[in-house]
C-alpha cells in the first residue's frame, strides 16, 4: 500500500476508462453532439434575433452542457457494475474514494472537457464576444467537474435499478441547480458589464465543496449497490 501503488491504481483506472471511451467512440460523440444539438435548437425555436440570442446564450449553453453531462454521467458505473469490475474495485486495498475520483476524472476528461472547448464555437454562434466567451469557457471549466462529481452520486445510487436513466435525472438535477445559477450568472454578468468574479468564486467554492464530499457519498453508494 505504498504511495506509488495508489498512484498506479489511479493511473490505471483513468487510462482504462479513457481507452474504453475511445474504443466506443459512438458513446463519446453522442454526448458532444447532444450538446451541440440542444444548443442549436434554441435559435430555431426562439428565432434568429441576435439581441435575444445574446441575452439567452449563457443560460442556454449552460443548460445544454448540464444536460449532456447528465446524459453521460448516468452510465459512469453501469458497465463496470454489470461485468463485475466494480466489485473488484471495491476489493482493491486502496481507498474506494480515490478510485471513484479517478473514474469521475476520466468521465470529465471524456465528456466535460469537449464541452468546455466547444463552448467557444457555440458561444460565437450565439453572438458572445471577447470577455464573455472567455468567462463562458472558464465557468464551464470550473462547473463541469462539479457536475460530474454530483452526477456520479446519482449514478452510483441507481445502479441496477429499473428506469435508472430517468431516476438519475430526477435525483441529480435539483443538486445541479446552484452550479447552473452561478455558471450562467457569471456569463450574463460579464455581458451586462458587472464582472463575473463573484459568480466564478461561488462556482469555485461549489467545486471545492464537491471535491472531497461527493466521492465520499459516491463510494458509500457504490458499496450499498455492490453488497
Amino acid at each position: 500500500m505504498s504511495q506509488a501503488g495508489l498512484g498506479g491504481a489511479v493511473g490505471a483506472i483513468v487510462k482504462r476508462d479513457l481507452l474504453l471511451a475511445f474504443r466506443r467512440r459512438a458513446d463519446l460523440s453522442t454526448t458532444v453532439f447532444f450538446f451541440i444539438m440542444v444548443a442549436s435548437l434554441f435559435p430555431l425555436g426562439v428565432g434568429p434575433e441576435p439581441g435575444v440570442l445574446r441575452a439567452i446564450a449563457p443560460g442556454v449553453l449552460w443548460v445544454a452542457a448540464l444536460l449532456s453531462c447528465l446524459l453521460s454521467v448516468g452510465r459512469v458505473f453501469t458497465a463496470d457494475y454489470q461485468d463485475g469490475v466494480l466489485e473488484q474495485m471495491v476489493l482493491i486495498p486502496h481507498p474506494l474514494i480515490v478510485m471513484v475520483l479517478a473514474k469521475v476524472f476520466a468521465h470529465w476528461l471524456v465528456s466535460g472537457l469537449p464541452v468546455v472547448l466547444l463552448s467557444f464555437l457555440l458561444g460565437l454562434q450565439f453572438g458572445l464576444e471577447g470577455d464573455a466567451l472567455a468567462v463562458l469557457a472558464l465557468s464551464l471549466l470550473l462547473g463541469t467537474p462539479t457536475l460530474s462529481l454530483i452526477g456520479s452520486i446519482g449514478a452510483a445510487l441507481t445502479l441496477g435499478v429499473r428506469g435508472s436513466g430517468m431516476l438519475v435525472a430526477l435525483l441529480v438535477l435539483p443538486l445541479f441547480i446552484p452550479v447552473l445559477i452561478f455558471g450562467a450568472g457569471a456569463v450574463s454578468s460579464t455581458v451586462s458589464g458587472i464582472g463575473a468574479e463573484a459568480n466564478l468564486s461561488l462556482l469555485g467554492a461549489c467545486l471545492m465543496v464537491a471535491l472531497p464530499l461527493a466521492p465520499w457519498a459516491t463510494a458509500a453508494a457504490v458499496r450499498i449497490a455492490v453488497e
Partner: peptide, 9 residues
C-alpha cells in the same frame, strides 16, 4: 440508498 441521498440533500 435513499438514506444516503437524504444526507446528500
Amino acid at each position: 440508498a435513499s438514506a444516503l441521498f437524504a444526507l446528500v440533500g
